[in-house]
Simulated assay, not measured.
Amino acid sequence: MKQHEIAVFGGAHIDRRGRIIGSTAPGASNPGTWFEEAGGGGFNAARNLARLGHRVRMISPRGGDASGEMVAAAAAAAGVIDCPFTFLDRKTPSYTAILENDGNLAIALADMELYALFSPRRLQQRATREVIAASDLVLMDANLPQETLAALVRAASGDCRPIAGIAVSPAKVIRYGECLAGLDFLFMNEAEARALTGTENADAEAWPHLLRAVGLSGGVVTRGDRAAVAFDRMSACLAEPPALPALADVTGAGDALASGFLSARLSGLDLAASLRHGIAAALITLRSPYAAAEEMSANKLREALPLVPAPQMLA
């Protein structure tokens, strides 16, 4: 597989996850376990893409604290070229999630105030402009401010380089509103797709039409254990994720799907094959206790591919 130059802009922070043991008792103290690691939508994808063999640069705000050092160490361990904007007097952002015993999310709290300081002005720095110019793909997540996302899409446009986004959450995906037309792909779940389109309920087959109607030319909508749908300017397809006996943790699965999909797309594969690769990457992550599976690799991805059924093309 050819190594591609990839620039990732967005969240690189601390993920704290508590997992409840037994049945959840709302409004009460629940026994459980606690786990902490580096995370963030963009950073999870950056580490996956680096482990899949690409040369990846991560550009993100960072605090001058121990959490920032943990993020830097995780980048080095995954082979990501770390290019932070460090604010020595600030704390690194964090995401705290409480998971049900089965691995599904119960509730989460995001302390992301520092990302507001990543203004469009940062994109004008020479080093950042050079990173964008040298990239075969620019990937961003919606932890960044709306005006920064729009400025980044403008800066990355041209030279036939694909531009992709990760939705992050229903509250944040709307930050892409004014730059949707500049994205080649946006990766989201159904809740995020509903927030973007204003649609309450939709069948999987309807998402390509609904998302094109708001200006998006390509994307992937995941639907938990139900079929995921992908579309581009010319086509659309559905793929059923294989059933798993148990989930280690759902955190990072969507970021892994984006990584596998984009890696395949950069290699010249079509929409259906790229979706299969994305789902295979998500399977690797769902089996791992980490948001970015340490065992992710091109070989592991090939081994997981036969588990994913061939996608169904849509009219």
Score class of each variant (00 low, 15 high):
D111M: 04
A272G: 14
I107Y: 12
L238C: 12
M70D: 14
T222H: 11
H54F: 04
E190P: 14
T148H: 12
R121S: 15
A204N: 08
L139S: 10
V250D: 05
T92Y: 08
L88D: 15
A272T: 07
E294K: 12
L266N: 14
V250R: 08
N201W: 11
A46C: 13
C237Y: 07
A150Q: 14
E37P: 03
D111Q: 13
G278M: 00
G278F: 09
A167V: 04
D225S: 10
G177M: 01
D270K: 12
R122M: 10
L301E: 10
C83P: 00
T148D: 15
T92S: 11
K91S: 15
V173L: 03
A281R: 11
L180T: 09
E295V: 10
D89L: 09
D232A: 03
M296D: 11
V250M: 07
R212T: 09
D89T: 08
S259N: 09
A315Y: 07
P208T: 11
T251D: 09
S157M: 03
L210E: 07
A280S: 13
P145V: 02
A273I: 05
D184E: 11
V250A: 12
I20H: 09
L196G: 05
L286N: 03
A116N: 14
R122L: 15
G64D: 12
D255A: 14
R226E: 15
A246K: 06
L52R: 04
A282N: 02
L211T: 00
G18Y: 12
P31N: 05
V173I: 02
I14K: 09
S157V: 03
A74V: 06
N30Y: 02
T148N: 02
G40M: 02
G42W: 09
G165K: 01
A230E: 04
L196I: 02
L49E: 10
L139H: 11
A171H: 11
D255L: 13
I6D: 08
L99D: 06
F185K: 02
H277G: 05
L186T: 00
Q125H: 14
A156F: 10
T24R: 09
Q125L: 00
R161T: 00
A227C: 03
A7L: 00
A243K: 07
V220Q: 07
D15V: 01
E190I: 10
S119I: 14
S157L: 03
D159G: 04
A28W: 08
R302F: 08
C83N: 08
A150K: 01
A272P: 05
R276D: 01
D184K: 04
L123G: 12
K2W: 05
V173W: 05
P245I: 06
D270W: 12
R121N: 13
E205C: 09
L49H: 05
G42D: 12
M140L: 05
A133R: 15
S94K: 02
L275M: 13
G53W: 08
F85E: 09
G22M: 01
V221H: 12
H4Y: 06
R55A: 01
